[in-house]
C-alpha cells in the first residue's frame, strides 16, 4: 500500500478497492442509520464491480450498431441480431422439434460431453501426475514427451480418434480428454515434487503406506497446483468441444454454429458465441471457486 505502483499484487489492489468503497460510502452519507452503515459499502462494492462492464458492453453495442447498422453490411448489427434471433435469446430451453431446440439445451449436451471427457482427464491426470512427480526418472523420461503432446491442437487428434472409435460421440469425448489431460498431469507432477520434505518426514515417521500418503499428504499438499491444472484443463476442453462438434455433428452448440453458417443465419451464430463465452466463463469461475474452497487450508500457510 506504500506506493500505488504495487497494484499488480492482488492483495494491495483489493485493499485499494475496499478503501475506495469506504470512501464513497462516507461521501454519499445522508443519514447514519445502522442499515446504511452496514449495507452501503457492500452495495458500493457491488456497483463498482458490475457497473463498469455494463457501461463498456453498452458502448461496444453502440459502436457495433453504428459500424454495421447500414443496409448491406457484411455482419448483422445488434438490432438485427435481436430481430432475427429473439427466440434463441429469450428462451434457452424451448423444444420445437428434434433439430429445433433452445441453445441452453444444446449447451447442456455439450457440457455432458465435457463432463465425461474432463472428468476422466481429471482422474487419470492426477493419478499419472502423482506417479510422475514422485519419481525423478519418470519425470526425466516423460516430461519432454508431455511437453510436446501438450502443444498438439485439439482438432489434430480428431481424425485419429475417429479412426480408433469409429463413432463421433466417443471421439468427441476423447478429444476433450486428450486436450485437457496434459496441463493436469504437468501441474500435479510439479505440485507433488514441491511437497515439503517435512511432510514426507511426518509420513515416514508414522509409516503411512502409499495409499494413505496419496490421500492424506500428497493430494492436500499439491491441491493448489492440481487446481491450477484443472482450471487450464476445463478452459481447453471447452475450446475443444466446440471445435470437435463442428466436425462431428450431433446436437451440441458447436454443430449449431456450423449448421447456422450453412444456412446463413449469422445472427444465430452471434447469439451462440455469446452463449459459449458465458458458459466458458462460468466453468472457469466454478473450478476456481471450488479450488479456493478446497485449498483454503493449504494456501493459508
Amino acid at each position: 500500500m506504500s506506493t500505488p505502483l504495487t497494484k499488480i499484487q492482488p492483495l494491495s489492489s483489493k485493499v485499494t478497492a475496499t478503501e475506495v468503497a469506504a470512501g464513497s460510502a462516507t461521501y454519499f452519507k445522508p443519514q447514519a442509520g445502522a442499515w446504511s452503515k452496514r449495507y452501503r459499502p457492500m452495495l458500493a462494492n457491488f456497483l463498482q464491480v458490475v457497473v463498469p462492464p455494463i457501461v463498456m458492453i453498452a458502448l461496444f453495442m453502440v459502436i457495433w450498431q453504428i459500424a454495421f447498422g447500414r443496409a448491406g453490411a457484411s455482419l448483422p448489427s445488434p438490432m438485427q441480431v435481436w430481430k432475427d434471433s429473439k427466440d434463441l435469446i429469450i428462451d434457452p430451453f424451448f423444444v420445437a422439434g428434434p433439430q429445433d431446440i433452445g441453445l441452453g439445451l444444446r449447451v447442456l449436451t455439450s457440457l455432458q460431453r465435457v463432463a465425461l471427457g474432463f472428468g476422466m482427464a481429471a482422474i487419470v491426470g492426477v493419478l499419472v501426475g502423482a506417479v510422475i512427480g514422485q519419481s525423478v526418472w519418470a519425470t526425466r523420461g516423460l516430461d519432454p514427451i508431455f511437453q510436446i503432446l501438450r502443444t498438439v491442437p485439439p482438432l489434430a487428434w480428431l481424425p485419429i480418434s475417429l479412426a480408433a472409435f469409429r463413432d463421433s460421440q466417443p471421439s468427441a469425448i476423447f478429444v476433450i480428454f486428450i486436450t485437457s489431460i496434459w496441463p493436469i498431469i504437468i501441474n500435479t507432477a510439479v505440485g507433488v515434487r514441491n511437497i515439503p520434505q517435512d511432510y514426507r518426514n511426518v509420513a515416514q515417521v508414522l509409516c503411512l503406506n502409499q495409499i494413505e500418503f496419496f490421500y492424506k499428504i500428497m493430494v492436500p499438499s499439491a491441491a493448489p497446483y492440481i487446481f491450477t491444472g484443472l482450471r487450464i484443463g476445463i478452459g481447453l476442453s471447452w475450446l475443444a468441444i466446440v471445435a470437435a462438434e463442428m466436425l462431428t455433428g450431433g446436437v451440441g452448440i458447436g454443430f449449431f454454429i456450423w449448421d447456422a453458417w450453412n444456412s446463413s443465419h449469422l445472427s444465430d451464430i452471434i447469439v451462440a458465441l455469446a452463449y459459449i463465452g458465458v458458459v466458458g466463463f462460468i466453468l472457469d469461475r466454478l473450478v476456481a471457486i471450488i479450488g479456493q474452497l478446497v485449498t483454503r487450508g493449504t494456501s493459508a500457510n
Binding site: 517435512d198 511432510y199 518426514n201 511426518v202 515416514q204 515417521v205 508414522l206 509409516c207 492424506k216 499428504i217 492436500p220 499438499s221 491441491a223 485449498t295 487450508g297 493449504t298 493459508a300 500457510n301
Partner: peptide, 19 residues
C-alpha cells in the same frame, strides 16, 4: 527405517496446514 516408536518433534513444527 523410521517408525512410530521413535517420534520426532521437528524444528519447524511440521503440522499439516490443511488439518
Amino acid at each position: 527405517s523410521p517408525g512410530p516408536e521413535r517420534a520426532v518433534v521437528f524444528q519447524n513444527h511440521s503440522l499439516l496446514p490443511w488439518l
